[in-house]
């Protein structure tokens, strides 16, 4: 169970606003976290706590393939992102680095003005609780669940492919 504060974002949040390109000359996680959402939510990096939940609208993570985007979000403390839909490469990247995503139109809309409020997410059950309501998400595909269980693609490959 993931429990934390909601950080609410809108539709089409692109990787350029998640982590602007001018901060891409480094790849250290803590540095990336510091500049996460610098342009559109300067209060994010300083205010987010480990376990917080990001809720967004459609097409979250569109734009470039920079893995720095999910890394920055995860390193900042977010433990799950719930959105109406995700851009494809962001979706891959997030699961590959062990940051789970849930697709739920209900939760995205039902909690659209719940910024700062508490929420809880049960990943395995695909359940999101907030505002005294319960929302359901599309189940995480088996393969993605395996990646999350393994802790990301690196550990999955070490285990499954090269037997380390």
């Amino acid at each position: 169970m993931i429990q934390g504060k909601i950080w609410k974002f809108g539709d089409d949040i692109d990787t350029d606003v998640i982590i602007p390109a001018r901060y891409l000359n480094v790849s250290a996680e803590a540095e990336l976290a510091k500049n996460c959402f610098a342009d559109i939510r300067p209060d994010f990096a300083g205010g987010v706590s480990v376990g917080d939940i990001l809720i967004a609208g459609k097409n979250f993570g569109c734009g470039s393939s920079r893995e720095h985007a999910p890394i920055a979000i995860k390193a900042a403390g977010i433990r799950v992102i719930v959105a109406e839909s995700f851009a494809r490469i962001f979706y891959r990247n997030a699961f590959n680095i062990g940051l789970p995503l849930l697709e739920s139109m209900e939760a995205s809309r039902g909690l659209s003005d719940a910024d700062g409020e508490d929420a809880a997410v049960d990943l395995a059950a695909g359940r999101i609780e907030g505002r005294g309501q319960v929302f359901s998400a599309r189940p995480i595909p088996d393969f993605m669940a395996k990646l999350i269980d393994a802790g990301g693609l690196v550990d999955y490959i070490r285990k499954e492919k090269i037997g380390k």
Partner: peptide
Amino acid sequence: TGVGSTDLGAVMAT
């Protein structure tokens, strides 16, 4: 198609 760096690291290995 475009992928992420973790994907690419894994491809370089496998």
